[in-house]
């Protein structure tokens, strides 16, 4: 389990990182919790690895009334400790184990786009976006990709060749709304067999499901929570794998969506003093 040969780049600032990516392509190394195992198992053999850990200014966690902006080098553990967003904090406790959370990054998890990962669902249910930079004709340019367009398919995000995701924005919960995240994994900290996070506000409810499609599956539940489980089961398209059958996953995600909606509604009601 040793990686094949690659050229290693360790740029010090964003323009240098983007120039390198523009010139050589290559894989971006941030927390390395997915890339390094893939390299070691020779499942990936990039000619170049661009390590952004020395790039200044990417590790920020900025909180405003509008929401939380998480920089590309902010670790799961740092974001969890910052406690800046209740749903994000809840989800991060479900991400793997402390050792992985100490290294892994929030933005890295979004770009990795594992259909069973928690953070893409959080971004999706909140309607957040990812900010992406590239080197274009001698200068740095940015674009913002909304969550709805970011998760293209299993393990595939909308970040293009030569682009670097520099931050993700998680909108704050609207006043008087509540959120919750429930999942079932085989072992504590594993990728979920299925999961659901929900936001319930005055205007309605949304749920995003994981492990049951090519990416987070977002369902607008509206005001009627009683039929939510059935609607969620209709909307998802899970697969069989060695850990669970598709039928079980479909059943399970309904149960979890119902639980998440119930808890989110309770929190929302508490926030409204109802």
């Amino acid at each position: 389990m040793k990686p094949p040969p690659f050229t290693y780049h360790a740029p010090r600032d964003l323009p240098a990182a983007l120039r390198t990516l523009a010139e050589v392509g290559g894989k971006v190394l941030a927390g390395g919790q997915s890339l390094i195992p893939m390299l070691n198992m020779r499942l990936a053999a990039p000619g170049h690895v661009v390590d952004i850990n020395r790039v200044a200014g990417l590790d920020g966690i900025e909180v405003s009334r509008a929401g939380v902006t998480v920089g590309a080098l902010a670790r799961h553990a740092d974001v969890e400790r910052a406690g800046a967003h209740p749903l994000l904090t809840w989800a991060l406790k479900l991400v793997a184990h402390p050792a992985i959370r100490n290294r892994g990054t929030v933005v890295g998890s979004l770009v990795h786009a594992d259909p069973a990962a928690e953070l893409p669902a959080v971004l999706a249910v909140l309607g957040g976006h990812v900010r992406v930079a590239r080197w274009d004709c001698g200068r740095v340019t940015f674009r913002e990709i909304p969550a709805a367009e970011f998760f293209v398919g299993p393990m595939e995000s909308a970040v293009g060749p030569g682009e670097l995701a520099v931050s993700a924005f998680f909108p704050a919960l609207e006043e008087g709304s509540g959120a919750a995240f429930h999942e079932v994994s085989r072992r504590h900290g594993d990728y979920a067999l299925a999961g659901a996070c929900a936001v319930v506000g005055v205007a309605g409810a949304r749920v995003a499901c994981i492990g049951v499609g090519g990416g987070p599956v977002v369902i607008d539940v509206g005001g009627d929570l009683s039929s939510a489980a059935a609607r969620v089961r209709d909307a998802v398209d899970p697969d069989d794998d060695i850990h669970a059958s598709a039928a079980y996953r479909r059943h399970l995600v309904g149960v979890l969506a119902e639980r998440a909606l119930r808890d989110a509604a309770r929190e929302g009601a508490a926030a409204r003093g109802a």
Partner: peptide, 11 residues
């Protein structure tokens, strides 16, 4: 026995 298998047995 996994949760998925117990679910199938219940069904």
């Amino acid at each position: 026995i996994s949760p998925s298998e117990l679910f199938e047995l219940r069904m």
